[in-house]
Structures are given as structure tokens and as C-alpha cells.
């Protein structure tokens, strides 16, 4: 479309014949026109480089070094260790149990968050505007709770003696409770001892706080789908599930792609909630972030090993995200 307006002014051929105002722009800024987009990118790149790339490079460097307090405070030079930090963490059982916890948690929590979020998003779309607003405000409260407070809330709900969960389970008729769980007495049930039950509570906590964002994003996507499509589907006698699969899902695919990648990233690196729920003594319940933090910052500080764990976590995230995005574009091409 822009091509139609390209009539070179004067005889001189411009470096960018596509732009009519190439000549005046050059005069004003003194920069070649091709460089303008790059110049405009510089501020952003500088900020990203300072806040993200530099720490990232530092982290990778430190992961090959022996760095403790003496090195951090500059009283001793850092010592180059090669792959020693990596060898020692791969050798440690805590690393493997942390890796398992991290991956299993993400595999469970990401789909749950997306499914629940999408369901609520679709529900919001069908509600009347007042009710929809009411529900959005309600769920956004959960999303707005800071991570540490989320941990504290769920820790109290699942508290062995003062928690409402054990109280509520005890209120169930004994026969029902026995039929469902094989037991009737829940007094003093410790939810935050075993790794599996800690992660169950953590999953509930993270899904609870994560789904509102998905729901609202999906709602925004749904608003952009023309109502005619749904009318046509209704006329053709499509079931709600079929409508979702054939209309909503394909049209919202870009939205889901972004939300999935974000959820994967968030759930892989969850830390604050786990820190509050499990504490630092129970190392069976560590995930990679917790393990990295205790290695790096608990006395005696081994920031090299901590950085090595963080690098492993970053690499895993990059692979998962890259694989997912590639898969998505492949499907697009078909």
C-alpha cells in the first residue's frame, strides 16, 4: 500500500526510495536513514543490557568460579574452577530431588492454571456486564496478593491445629470422609511435612493466584472474536465444546501461546510461596530456586554452586520455551 505513494522527488536516487521524507529526515538528524530504527532501539537495549544481560553474563561467569563472601567483598580474587561447581551439584542428591520437584510441579500447575483460567474467562464472557465486572474484581484480588502473603494465607489455611482445612474436613460426616479419604479424623493432620502434600498446597496456592490473569487475558481475546462466528455455529447446531474447539481455541491460539510460555516461566521459578510454606530446613521439598538460594546465600556461602544451579534452571527454561514456540510455529505452517 505504501508503495503507491513512492515517487522519487528530483533526479537523485534516495537510499530508501520507499520513504518520501528521507531527505529532510537526514538533514534534521544528520544520521543515515537506515540507522534510525537502530538508534531508536538503543535506549531499550541499554536498559536490557544493564538490567538483564550483564547479570546473566555475571551469573554464568560466577558458575565457573569459587565465589564466597571474601570474593564478593573484593578482598580475594575469584578462583576459576572450570566445571567443578557443575560436577558437585550433579553429584548431590538434593539437586536431583529439586529438579524432580521443579519439573513435576510445573507439569501439574501450568495446565491446571490454564484450564481453570480459560474456563473462568469463557464464563466471564457469557456473564452480563455487571456480573462479569463483579467476578473480575473478585478474582483480581487473588492475583494482586503478593507472593509472600499468598504463602502465608495458605499456610494458615492448612495449619495442622488452627487451620480451617482440617476443621472443615472434620465437619464432613464420618462415613463420607471415610469413603472419600479412608479416614474420619483429621485433627492435627500435618500438611506441610511431606514433600507431596507441601507441593499439593503449593499447587493450590499458585493456581489460585495465577488463574485470574489467564482468565482476564482470555476474556480480552474473546472480546475480539466476531459474534457472527458463534451465531453461525449455533445455527449449525454445534455443541458448546465443539464451538470452543473449532472457533474459540483456534482464534485464541496466539493468546494461549503467550499465556503458556508465561505460565511455564512463572511456575518453573516459583520461590516465595514455597519458602513460606516449607521453610529452609526441609530440603526434600526444595525446588531448584530454593536450592540455588540456600547454596548461594546460606553460610558458608557458595555463590558459584548457586549460580551453577541457576544456569541449569535457565537452560531448562530456554529449552522448554524454545521447543514450545517451535512446535507452535510448525503447526501454524501446516
Amino acid at each position: 500500500m505504501t508503495k503507491t505513494s513512492t515517487l522519487p522527488r528530483g533526479e537523485r536516487s534516495s537510499a530508501t526510495p520507499g520513504r518520501r521524507r528521507a531527505h529532510p529526515a537526514r538533514k534534521a538528524s544528520g544520521l543515515p536513514v537506515w540507522s534510525i530504527p537502530y538508534v531508536l532501539l538503543i535506549p531499550g537495549l541499554v536498559v536490557i543490557a544493564a538490567l538483564l544481560l550483564y547479570p546473566l553474563v555475571q551469573m554464568v561467569t560466577i558458575s565457573f568460579q569459587k565465589v564466597g563472601l571474601l570474593q564478593i567483598s573484593g578482598r580475594r580474587p575469584a578462583e576459576w574452577l572450570g566445571w567443578e561447581n557443575y560436577a558437585s551439584i550433579f553429584d548431590n542428591d538434593i539437586f536431583w530431588s529439586s529438579l524432580r520437584n521443579t519439573v513435576v510441579f510445573a507439569v501439574v500447575a501450568v495446565p491446571l492454571t490454564l484450564i481453570l483460567g480459560t474456563a473462568v474467562g469463557v464464563l466471564l464472557h457469557r456473564l452480563g456486564s455487571k456480573m462479569s465486572l463483579f467476578v473480575i474484581i473478585g478474582i483480581m484480588f487473588a492475583w494482586a496478593v503478593p507472593p509472600v502473603a499468598q504463602g502465608v494465607i495458605w499456610r494458615w489455611l492448612f495449619d495442622a491445629e488452627a487451620g480451617i482445612i482440617n476443621w472443615a474436613l472434620n465437619l464432613l460426616p464420618d462415613s463420607l470422609s471415610s469413603a472419600l479419604f479412608g479416614r474420619a479424623d483429621w485433627t492435627g493432620e500435618p500438611w506441610l511435612n511431606d514433600t507431596w502434600s507441601i507441593y499439593m498446597v503449593l499447587t493450590i496456592c499458585v493456581v489460585w493466584a495465577g488463574f485470574p490473569f489467564i482468565a482476564v487475558s482470555v476474556l480480552a481475546g474473546l472480546k475480539g472474536i466476531p459474534a457472527e462466528l458463534y451465531e453461525a455455529a449455533r445455527v449449525d447446531g454445534s455443541t458448546p465444546w465443539r464451538t470452543f474447539r473449532k472457533i474459540t481455541f483456534p482464534l485464541l491460539k496466539p493468546v494461549f501461546a503467550v499465556l503458556t510460555v508465561l505460565s511455564i516461566i512463572w511456575d518453573f521459578k516459583v520461590f516465595s510461596q514455597l519458602y513460606v510454606l516449607a521453610g529452609t530446613t526441609n530440603r526434600d521439598a526444595y525446588n531448584l530456586s530454593m536450592y540455588a538460594v540456600t547454596e548461594a546465600f546460606k553460610a558458608p556461602q557458595k555463590m558459584g554452586s548457586g549460580a551453577a544451579i541457576a544456569v541449569v534452571l535457565t537452560v531448562i527454561l530456554l529449552i522448554v520455551t524454545a521447543a514450545y514456540i517451535r512446535q507452535m510455529f510448525k503447526q501454524e505452517e501446516l
Binding site: A160, E161, G188, P190, N193, T281, N282
Partner: peptide, 11 residues
């Protein structure tokens, strides 16, 4: 294990 202290406060 003998119940002198609750299992819910292991740490």
C-alpha cells in the same frame, strides 16, 4: 513418634 511433641512442627 511417642507423641510428646506434635508431628506438625518438625522444623
Amino acid at each position: 513418634t511417642d507423641g510428646l511433641s506434635s508431628k506438625s512442627r518438625l522444623s
